[in-house]
Nucleic acid binder design. Sequence first.
RNA 1: GCUCGCUUGGUGUAGCCCGGCCAAUCAUAUCGGCCUUUCGAGCCGAUGACAGGGGUUCAAAUCCCCUAGCGAGCACCA
Length: 518
Amino acid sequence: MVEEVNALAEEAKRERLEELAPDRAAELDAERADEDDGDGQVLPELPNADAVAEVRMRLAPNPNGPWHLGSARMPAVIGTYKERYDGWMLCRFDDTDPETKRPDLDAYDEILEAIDYLGFEPDEVVTASDRLEIYYDHARRLVEAGGAYTCSCSGEAFSELKNRAEPCPHRDTDPATTLEEFEAMVDGEYDAGDVVLRVRTDIEHPNPAMRDWVAFRMVDTPHPRDEAAGYRCWPMLDFQSGIDDRLFDVTHIIRGIDLQDSAKRQRFVYDYFDWEYPEVVHWGHVQIDDYDVKLSTSTIKALVESGELDGWDDPRAPTIASLRRRGIRGEAIVEAMIELGTSTSNVDLAMSSVYAKNRELVDDETDRAFLVRDGVRKQLVGGPARAEPPVHPDHPDRGTREIPVGDAVLVEPDDVPPNGSRVWLKGYGPVRHTRDAFEFTGEDIEIVREEGVDVVHWVPADESRPLVLRTMDGDETGRAEPGVADYAPDDLLQFERVGFARVDRHEDDESVAYFAHP
RNA sequence: GCUCGCUUGGUGUAGCCCGGCCAAUCAUAUCGGCCUUUCGAGCCGAUGACAGGGGUUCAAAUCCCCUAGCGAGCACCA
């Protein structure tokens, strides 16, 4: 009620302010928007964002495998900017290498699913390997403008000349001849390595990385996509991506420092066409702690193929699919990624940060349950026949769980009190460890508060359900209270004093859950 | 080797462009307290950083130089 009045008053003040000082009102809105972005860091403003009618960005994944956790940074940051500026976002599959980074046909859809899981939706999706004719056309125009030449030097020979800032003999090739040879490249009349199309930049450029780079090369291996399998002449990333960014009116490019020099290289092409280069933001590499597996598509692929990992969603794999299966929300990953900001230095993402975000998101709606790992069996003497702990301690209205006790319980080895000591079986009551049994003492909960009796979780020894908990450190076996069998796959549970887990499946004799985090 | 970039507590980040309000922000982490039938949540508190060295200045995390460390590019990979 008070809040309501406050809100109303706030609204009224806001309106009044609008009349008196519209500028100040807008400022306040901006501040409020920043605050709403989360309780942690907020991404910095994009350079010159207000100079464009619409902020247009692109995700440019290489579909050579499913995404690892580092890949999430791209949609997280770009997607968040899209929302902030009410902008536009393209997903462009840069799949122009049929050989070395050969596309994986399943990855296209898997990547789109990952983007969706993270909570974003591209406004348009295109595939570079569908657009070869467009790149060819632009190559022809570039040649006509004197911006490129065909070169049949071997890679080593050219590299040697280049490092001495000396032109190769083909640099003088005139546009007409170049065009002829380029058409032959397009027609597939050469084999890989025979000839390339080079951009004529500045052979004496102080940075050797800038000197006459390759725009197109021949690839003998057919592209895995049927639509593109007929092409042999493929553009290099710097050419393809540079052209596409312009054709889609991209205003802001956000990418990794490995592509630091790309902008400088592409500018040579832009200059020939008299185009203006978009704004660029670079970020450093991300490493993720807590994993033994390296954050690399090829490494993970190898481990999956060799069977060391069950699949891309093995809990030990640092992949998006894995976190998803563990029941972690895409939003938690995004928030953690946003906090990394966009600095060009390399960063370590702490998984605890992802976990903290996720806990915040799911804690309130996640039901509680007991799971005992490595249970020690104790005979129970006396006491009620059933326990009724709450489904969620903060929400009594959600009811209670009915746990039949039977005549023995299981507790975790560390929770067994010394002989003669008491322990409180959570949701059930106080017991004393006597010889090899737990004897119900019937004392009041006061002993927990005033005498420091520990509260532990437990399950009935006989009526509990076997459960495998898959964790990053391997599988753990245990027994859960019978009620867990009623939860559907994908449901989240908090195993009290163990942690959050996602119910994966129920098999005949056991249930399987994936551990998310404490 | 050539070219470019980076370096704030355990981790990430703000501040650096436009030097003073920075004995340095926020989050996470760790530890402690309160609360509590979770080692969860919440609340309170504590811990902990300007890579090093010079210089400019009344004043430097912020500007300049040097050193060290890290990284990227110099691929017919993306």
